[in-house]
């Protein structure tokens, strides 16, 4: 099992965590709502639960709860720009189809 980050994503996560001044990890996960089944969770993490899975890539600690990992295992987190907009993207190999905007997905 693995979660990886692109260089751009790792750099931005490190910068955002430093700016926030607390929390050491990034939480990735899924929630069961959204227009097409699942939705991604992307949060700062102040605490790590006992059953959380902890990954580390490019100096960034990423944590995922055991329920979510089955939906996002193998995901590469990327950071990109679309026009003026910029933010994180999940390159998730498990996705079969997603809603038009890609905010929610099915496996």
């Amino acid at each position: 099992m693995a979660i990886t980050l692109t260089d751009a994503a790792a750099e931005h996560v490190a910068r955002f965590i430093e700016n926030r001044g607390k929390g050491e990890a990034l939480r990735l996960g899924v929630k069961t709502n959204g227009c097409s089944g699942m939705a991604y969770v992307l949060e700062f993490a102040d605490t790590i639960d006992d059953d959380d899975l902890v990954f580390e890539d490019k100096g960034v600690k990423v944590i995922v709860d055991p329920k979510s990992i089955v939906y996002i295992d193998g995901t590469e987190l990327d950071y990109g720009k679309e026009g003026l907009n910029e933010g994180f993207k999940f390159n998730n190999p498990n996705v079969k189809d997603s809603c038009g905007c890609g905010e929610s997905f099915n496996v």
């Binding site: 939705a39 992307l42 700062f44 993490a45």
Partner: peptide, 17 residues
């Protein structure tokens, strides 16, 4: 693909909201 931002713990919003 929508671009996501990192939320505060527990503050992740539902898609499109």
């Amino acid at each position: 693909m929508a671009l996501l931002q990192i939320s505060e713990p527990g503050q992740s919003s539902a898609p499109h909201q």
